[in-house]
Amino acid sequence: MKLTLIRHTTPDVPKGTIYGKTDVLLKSTFEAEAEIVRMNIGDNKFDRVFTSPLTRCRRLAEFCGFGYADVDDNLAEMDFGDWEMKSYAEIEEHQLEEYFNDWRHKVTPGGESFEDHQRRVRVFINECIRDGYKSVLCFTHGGTILHAMILAGSIDDERPFDHIPAFGSMVNIEVTEPLI
């Protein structure tokens, strides 16, 4: 199955703000960024189109002509719980240190872990494979795309954050078998 993943355009949040599952606004450059995304999609055809439930993804899907995209909660960004909409400066240093020392397993207060998020992405991909799709388009988030790339073996999971796709970018991966 060919999985085409598109990251939403630039959010209108201050640099250094943790916004994960928060439904944030997009910058005033949305239309210009979205037009580039639409051109990059071109006339490609897909068996199915999905979007994260968050407005920043649904709005891009609609702009690109996919207003009918199915909303799938598994495509949402990681939930950072009590850290949502806080800057790193607002979080106690010892909490940040604990989190970054074990980011794969550590859960932010009231949020989910990296592993929990990856589990959601695995469920989504396996459902697409089970349903027999050959080509799927997803409007989603940087973290969700990272997990898909890790699960597909496209990137090493030792330093995944080095591979976060740019806003409005498109990543294609191939997945041929259900993921364990």
Results as ranks from 00 to 15, higher is better:
61 A>L: 09
61 A>C: 08
16 G>F: 04
57 C>Q: 06
22 T>A: 15
62 E>A: 13
56 R>E: 13
44 N>F: 07
38 R>H: 03
21 K>W: 00
37 V>H: 01
41 I>R: 01
42 G>Q: 06
15 K>Q: 12
14 P>D: 15
60 L>R: 00
58 R>I: 12
21 K>Y: 01
16 G>Q: 05
45 K>D: 10
61 A>M: 04
58 R>W: 04
72 D>Y: 02
14 P>W: 07
42 G>W: 01
48 R>A: 14
8 H>T: 12
70 D>E: 15
27 K>C: 14
22 T>R: 01
55 T>K: 11
24 V>I: 08
36 I>V: 15
50 F>L: 14
30 F>E: 04
49 V>E: 08
24 V>S: 08
68 Y>D: 15
64 C>K: 00
33 E>W: 03
52 S>T: 08
53 P>K: 05
71 V>W: 00
43 D>Y: 03
67 G>S: 07
37 V>A: 10
59 R>G: 08
65 G>Y: 00
47 D>P: 02
44 N>P: 01
60 L>D: 08
13 V>H: 02
14 P>N: 12
55 T>M: 15
51 T>Y: 07
54 L>A: 10
11 P>H: 02
14 P>A: 14
54 L>Y: 03
28 S>T: 11
52 S>W: 02
24 V>A: 12
68 Y>P: 06
24 V>N: 08
75 L>G: 09
59 R>Y: 06
36 I>R: 11
72 D>I: 04
9 T>C: 14
75 L>N: 04
34 A>V: 02
71 V>H: 01
50 F>S: 11
33 E>I: 03
73 D>Y: 03
9 T>R: 02
51 T>A: 15
36 I>M: 12
45 K>A: 13
58 R>K: 14
58 R>S: 11
58 R>C: 13
26 L>V: 12
30 F>T: 01
30 F>V: 05
45 K>F: 07
14 P>R: 07
70 D>P: 00
31 E>R: 04
20 G>N: 01
16 G>T: 07
8 H>P: 11
43 D>V: 03
67 G>M: 04
56 R>F: 10
75 L>I: 05
34 A>M: 02
29 T>G: 08
73 D>G: 09
38 R>V: 04
59 R>F: 09
8 H>R: 09
56 R>K: 13
23 D>L: 10
37 V>T: 05
12 D>Y: 02
66 F>N: 03
18 I>P: 00
38 R>S: 12
26 L>D: 07
29 T>D: 15
49 V>P: 04
42 G>N: 07
66 F>D: 09
54 L>P: 04
69 A>D: 06
14 P>M: 14
28 S>L: 10
42 G>C: 07
35 E>P: 01
11 P>Y: 03
33 E>D: 14
50 F>H: 06
67 G>E: 06
38 R>G: 04
23 D>N: 13
47 D>I: 05
45 K>L: 13
18 I>T: 00
18 I>H: 00
52 S>D: 11
25 L>E: 15
28 S>Q: 14
48 R>N: 13
55 T>L: 14
8 H>Q: 12
10 T>K: 05
71 V>A: 11
64 C>I: 02
55 T>S: 15
51 T>G: 11
55 T>Q: 15
28 S>E: 15
25 L>P: 11
20 G>Y: 00
23 D>V: 08
53 P>G: 14
49 V>L: 12
69 A>H: 03
13 V>G: 06
50 F>V: 13
40 N>I: 04
59 R>I: 10
54 L>D: 05
37 V>D: 02
34 A>L: 05
